[in-house]
């Protein structure tokens, strides 16, 4: 909390764009935005955490069914998706650095690449899902897989679709946020003194990436 003397006159000498009325100055607004964002990210961590706990317990209970069920997953697609997300994380942090350094062109380019990578991720996801729909490897009561399978394998696909589906929704939400940032970046809203939204969008996107970092080994790579 900066203790610099706060001028008590109502109108600060120059009113930077984007500074909301109830904040004394930009740093206070940026700090509270960060705290608020991290608190929100914790709720996302715990939301997915609950699913991971459920998955962990059911996996421990039906180890052989889960092991045989996960062979239906395509490790190459999973690894590809991981690489895509990691790279999109990199482009996102470069976008934030560009915004901070005032490099308008770089900011737009990096945001665009991040958007495209996110799209690529969803396309790969779509391919995986259509393969599962085709073979009937679906959650719960819709599990109609004809081939040889242990009775509890549908549980694996219940969790597979819940976890990757929820993650996919978050990737979609991320794409909406990034395209909104892209529009404002093209309009030139951001400057070295005001790039908060890009920073926040970046934090959200990195968290979506962290969740996939845990999701990939636990679902695709169990032996």
């Amino acid at each position: 909390m900066s203790d610099s003397a706060i001028s008590t006159t109502e109108h600060a000498p120059e009113h930077p764009p984007g500074l909301q009325h109830h904040f004394a100055e930009m740093e206070q607004q940026a700090d509270s935005a960060k705290i608020g964002m991290w608190a929100f990210l914790v709720t996302e961590v715990l939301l997915f955490g609950g699913l991971f706990v459920g998955y962990g317990i059911m996996h421990a209970r039906f180890t052989e069914a889960f092991a045989s069920a996960h062979h239906h997953l395509d490790r190459v697609m999973g690894t590809l998706n991981t690489v895509i997300l990691l790279t999109s994380s990199w482009t996102m942090v470069m976008a934030v650095s560009s915004a901070r350094a005032g490099k308008q062109k770089n900011l737009v380019r990096y945001l665009t690449v991040t958007l495209l990578l996110a799209g690529a991720f969803l396309v790969v996801k779509y391919l995986e899902y259509s393969h599962k729909f085709h073979e009937g490897l679906l959650p719960g009561r819709f599990y109609t897989y004809a081939g040889p399978h242990l009775p509890e394998e549908f549980l694996f696909f219940s969790f597979y679709f819940m976890m990757t589906g929820l993650h996919g929704l978050h990737v979609l939400a991320g794409m909406i946020v990034i395209s909104w940032l892209l529009r404002r970046a093209i309009r030139g809203d951001f400057s070295p003194s005001y790039y908060n939204p890009v920073d926040m969008g970046g934090l959200y996107w990195h968290l979506v990436d962290i969740i996939w970092i845990y999701l990939f080994p636990l679902i695709y790579l169990i032996s």
Binding site: I35, W38, A39, L41, V42, T43, G49
Partner: peptide, 15 residues
């Protein structure tokens, strides 16, 4: 500022 890291680690601790 460390407050952000504290918030993040608290979340993981609760999990």
């Amino acid at each position: 500022k460390p407050i952000n890291a504290i918030i993040f680690l608290t979340g993981i601790a609760m999990l």
